[in-house]
């Protein structure tokens, strides 16, 4: 194909397409690469550094999720430096965050042999923000992946209700002027919830069920439907608790050509009419 070229991955020559990132090549070649902040439909934040690889000629390791592949690149994904750096990233996060609702993070950490006890020290201590009827924010779980900020901003929603505030270890996600969601510019589309990889922002219903010990993933059944509110035709996934026949949350597939996983407040949260007349 025109615009194709070769790069070397762990000594193996592979084909890359013009414009692809190193991560895209690695995924196609089934080279397992941990990622945390990366999201297919958002600008790479290159913030977590889980995906770093060694690039010949570059002093520091490079984030494969952001760096474009170029002809002749020589990449190592299993060198000592890479293995050490990736493990370090996960160990640092495990020493800081509550990972209870981040099974994907924990699984990747285990896969690469990260030791949760390697570092100790100050953990994130943040209040729980339960300030609106639709979702709850528990920033002790936040890994500062920037996804919610990007989804709320230019990458999808263009509402600009969220920012990163502060600096260093004090840095964290804030709504509006460091205030409640209702006081901020938020329109409650829930797109931040949809992209959050750690459960730091979570639909309120799921959160409450978890607190009450009622949430059980295996009881969740996903029903596909099309949103009936307008003519755009967003595909919805209704996550229904089979035990109660209650909708727990609504999402949209990230691969859907209309939504890319993003919805508006009506599609995501306007389902209470389905429960009308129920106790």
């Amino acid at each position: 194909m025109a615009g194709d070229f070769k790069i070397s991955v762990d000594g193996r020559e592979v084909t890359a397409h013009e414009g692809e990132t190193i991560l895209q090549v690695l995924r196609r070649e089934e080279v397992e690469t941990p990622t945390l902040c990366y999201h297919d439909n958002l600008t790479p934040a290159k913030a977590c550094r889980a995906c770093v690889v060694e690039l010949k000629g570059s002093r520091a390791l490079v984030a494969s999720c952001e760096r474009k592949a170029e002809a002749g690149m020589e990449i190592q994904t299993e060198s000592e430096r890479v293995v050490n750096a990736r493990r370090g990233v996960f160990e640092l996060l495990l020493s800081q965050n509550d990972t209870e609702t981040a099974p994907n993070l924990v699984a990747q950490a285990q896969r690469i042999g990260a030791d949760p006890e390697h570092y100790s020290g100050l953990r994130y201590e943040r209040p729980l923000y339960d300030d609106n009827p639709l979702f709850v924010r528990d920033y002790e779980k936040c890994i500062l992946c920037y996804r919610c900020v990007e989804a709320c901003g230019v990458d999808a929603q263009n509402t600009f209700a969220l920012t990163v505030s502060g600096r260093g270890f004090e840095a964290g996600i804030a709504a509006g002027w460091g205030e409640t969601m209702p006081d901020s510019a938020c329109v409650f589309c829930g797109n931040c919830v949809a992209v959050c990889p750690t459960g730091a922002i979570m639909d309120r219903r799921e959160h409450q069920m978890r607190v009450q010990g009622r949430y059980d993933e295996s009881q969740m059944q996903v029903t596909q439907t099309t949103c009936s509110y307008c003519g755009v035709g967003c595909q919805l996934e209704l996550h229904v608790d089979q035990r109660t026949n209650e909708i727990v949350k609504v999402t949209s597939p990230e691969t859907h050509p209309v939504t890319f996983g993003f919805l508006c407040v009506k599609g995501r949260y306007g389902y209470s009419f389905t429960e009308a007349g129920r106790e």
Binding site: T163, S165, G166, R167, A174, G176, W177, G178
Partner: peptide, 25 residues
């Protein structure tokens, strides 16, 4: 103060929350 950020948003188009991010940085 927040009202200053509101005025900045109105005049310059910088969202209130962005100004908050900058001020706290």
């Amino acid at each position: 103060p927040r009202v200053a950020a509101e005025e900045i948003e109105r005049e310059m188009g910088v969202p209130v929350t962005d100004t908050y991010g900058v001020v706290t940085f």
